[in-house]
Design a protein around this nucleic acid. Structure first.
Lengths: 173, 173
DNA sequence: CAGAACGTTCAATCAAGACTGAACAAACGA
DNA sequence: TCGTTTGTTCAGTCTTGATTGAACGTTCTG
């Protein structure tokens, strides 16, 4: 482990906490995700509370939340009564699923008002167009998520060319 | 206008308010977007305050926010001293831009910790893979947004086939 | 069985940030 | 110039929801 690993990892955990809030999850839930992302082995209930310095009540509530969201899993450890948790294999796809769900809700709202309300032609055109666009994006993300899910765990990334090119573009934020 | 247009539109405006919160925007900002989406003509500062029943202070703050976000525009009306506002032409693409920005922030956090921290091989693989996935999604959404932006306003949607198929998939949420 | 360790629940507290409204400055018309 | 209309700012209030911590039920161990 490098010298500044601790800081970097702590920053990462906190950043995940911040970003969780954009996903309708409490900050602590995000930090748990961060912690489990970095941890090779499953972490115990107590260890999470301790390393995050939060109450056991919070750990209980937020692990339940994350299990319901499909982002973490319980894991029993032989010889230990404590609950253990590990990141779900498709945790980051689940995260995208939450984005998609919001997008679909938006699309639904727009499509509904476009169909059922007596708006002007201009507004109707605008709404219909937006709904179509949202549907496109939603469907495309789903497709990517499925493709990703289908990839074997130890994949050597055979389709690197396309990905690399696009990743570079994304880098320029 | 249909009988229940008012209710439907009011619901839409409120729904946009709710959804705005997931975009790091105040609820009132979302409602303004909803209002302007439905309105053929630009709406005056006063009209927005009145129809939303919010203070002028809130209108001022939130219109500024939305202008900064590129989602609405100021529009002067001859003979009226009030400010007027209309939806930006690419308002819904801007909304997606906010999602992309969050995604990139997430990708950045993950990529940084993958590069710089002394995590286990498993964690490193997981992080790298997640970063690649996020980059893919981000880049893909960008591409879709650009394609959408390039479409002429009165487009008859020549590429309906592909879109329709995918829209159906998205419908099944 | 008694005691301890564990996880859950929920009432109370706390924090973050949205919203208001009054004070203010600028632009306008009389 | 004076009064009016308009938009901005910001201190104070209010709302929402996260977090705590104590009480509780369960399970294990001695």
């Amino acid at each position: 482990m490098l010298d500044r690993s601790h800081d970097i990892e702590a920053t990462f955990v906190e950043e995940m906490g911040i970003l969780a809030q954009a996903d309708d999850l409490p900050r602590i839930a995000g930090r748990i995700i961060g912690l489990l992302t970095l941890s090779e082995a499953p972490l115990s209930f107590g260890a999470i509370a301790e390393r995050l310095r939060v109450s056991r009540g919070s750990v209980s509530t937020n692990t339940r939340l994350l299990i319901e969201a499909g982002m973490i899993e319980k894991a029993a450890m032989p010889g230990d009564r404590q609950d253990y948790f590990r990141l779900a294999a498709d945790a980051h796809q689940m995260q995208l699923q939450r984005m998609v769900a919001r997008l679909d809700r938006l699309r639904h709202a727009v499509a509904t008002v476009a169909e059922r309300s007596g708006t002007s032609a201009t507004a109707h055109e605008r709404l219909t167009r937006a709904a179509g666009f949202y549907a496109d994006v939603s469907a495309t993300i789903r497709a990517l998520a499925e493709r990703e899910a289908a990839r074997p765990q130890d994949d050597q990334r055979p389709e690197i060319s396309g990905r690399a090119a696009r990743s570079d573009a994304a880098e320029a934020t």
